[in-house]
Design a protein around this nucleic acid. Structure first.
Lengths: 169, 169
DNA sequence: GCATCTTACGCGTGACGTAAGCATC
DNA sequence: GATGCTTACGTCACGCGTAAGATGC
C-alpha cells in the first residue's frame, strides 16, 4: 500500500467510477482497476461494490477513505513545506556562552528579528566545546564561542546562517 | 515521493547512517542512497549532510522528518484499521419508516446493542422508496420498509448485516 | 586497512497501455 | 450498441543487488 494506490482509490471513490478516475488521473481503466484490486488483495477486504453504473464504497472502503485522503494531503503539504523556500522562516538555533548571550546577543539580534520576522530564535548557552560539537553535528545552526582574543561565530548550515552576521571582536 | 521513500528517509534519519538503515530495512546501501537521492532531487533540497562517519539531517531534512514519520504511522494505522476484523465495530446505518422506528425498533435493537456494543447505531427515517434507494447505493446498511402485508428488511452490505435479524411480520 | 557514502551496471519484476471479454441497460 | 468494469498480454522502465570507486580516519 503506497500513496499512489491510495490516491487512485480516493479519486475513484470521489468520482464514483473507475473510468472517470482514469480520465482524471490521465491513465486508463485497466490501471485503476489493477491498483484497486491490489489494494483490496493486500488488505484482504473489498473496498468497492461494483455496479453496472459505477462503483460504491463498501463499509471497509468508507473506513479507508479518510486515511487515503489524509495521506494525499500530507504528501502535498510535505512537498510544499520543504520545497518552498521563497520566504525565510523556521527556527534559528544558536548557541552561546552565558556571558556573550547576556552582553552582546540582544544588540546583535535586534536587526535580525525585524528583517526575518518569520524566524524563531532559540538561544542555548553552554561551554565552548559543547557548543562547537553541536554545530558540527548540525543540532545547532551556529554558535558564538570564545576564542582568543575575539568572539567568533561557527556556522554549520551555511545556507541558513548567511543572513546572520559574523561577529568580529 | 511515496511512503516507501519516506520510510527509508525516516529510518536513515533515525539511525544516523545509510548502512545502518539498509541493514534495518533488509536491503543494501546503494538502494538507500538512491532513494534518498531521488527524494532530494524531487524536492530540490538536500536532506542530509554527509560525513565520513554517517549522515546528519539538514534543516530541510528536519522539516521533512515529522511528515515522513506521520506518513509511515498513517499507513500502519490504515492497514490495521481496515484489515482487523476480529471485533465487530463501526456504525450500523439503518433506515426505517417513522412508525416502524417508533413502534418496533427499540425492541429489535435491544439485544443487538448488548451483543455488539462496539457498534454505533444510526437510524434514519424516511419514505420506503427513498430508503430502498439508499440501501441500493450503499449509503445505508439496511432498512425496514413497509411491504404488504409485512415489514421486511432490505440489506445491501450482507457481511455486516448478517448479525442483524431479518424481521418478519 | 577499515569505515563510510556514491556510482555503474546487469537482471528481473512490476507498471503501463492496448485490446479483447463480460455484463447491464 | 453504448457504457462500465475485468482480464490477458506485450513492452518498457524502474528498483533491486553486486561490485567497483571515492573519501576520510
Amino acid at each position: 500500500m503506497n500513496n499512489h494506490d491510495l490516491n487512485i482509490f480516493a479519486t475513484a471513490a470521489r468520482l464514483g467510477g473507475i473510468t472517470k478516475a482514469a480520465k482524471s488521473l490521465s491513465t486508463v481503466q485497466s490501471n485503476v482497476t489493477t491498483h484497486i484490486r491490489l489494494l483490496e488483495d493486500e488488505l484482504g477486504v473489498q473496498l468497492f461494490h461494483r455496479n453496472h453504473s459505477g462503483i460504491n464504497l463498501t463499509r471497509k472502503g468508507h473506513e479507508l477513505l479518510p486515511y487515503a485522503q489524509q495521506m494525499v494531503a500530507l504528501v502535498h503539504k510535505a512537498k510544499e513545506t520543504v520545497s518552498n523556500s521563497k520566504e525565510v522562516r523556521g527556527t534559528l538555533r544558536i548557541g552561546s556562552s552565558q556571558t556573550t548571550a547576556a552582553a552582546r546577543l540582544p544588540e546583535l539580534l535586534k536587526d535580525y528579528v525585524v528583517r526575518f520576522n518569520k524566524v524563531d530564535i532559540a538561544v542555548e548557552t553552554g561551554f565552548t566545546d559543547e557548543m562547537t560539537a553541536r554545530v558540527l553535528d548540525y543540532s545547532l545552526d551556529g554558535a558564538f564561542v570564545t576564542g582568543q582574543p575575539s568572539v567568533t561565530m561557527t556556522s554549520g548550515d551555511h545556507a541558513f546562517a548567511r543572513p546572520f552576521p559574523f561577529l568580529a571582536s
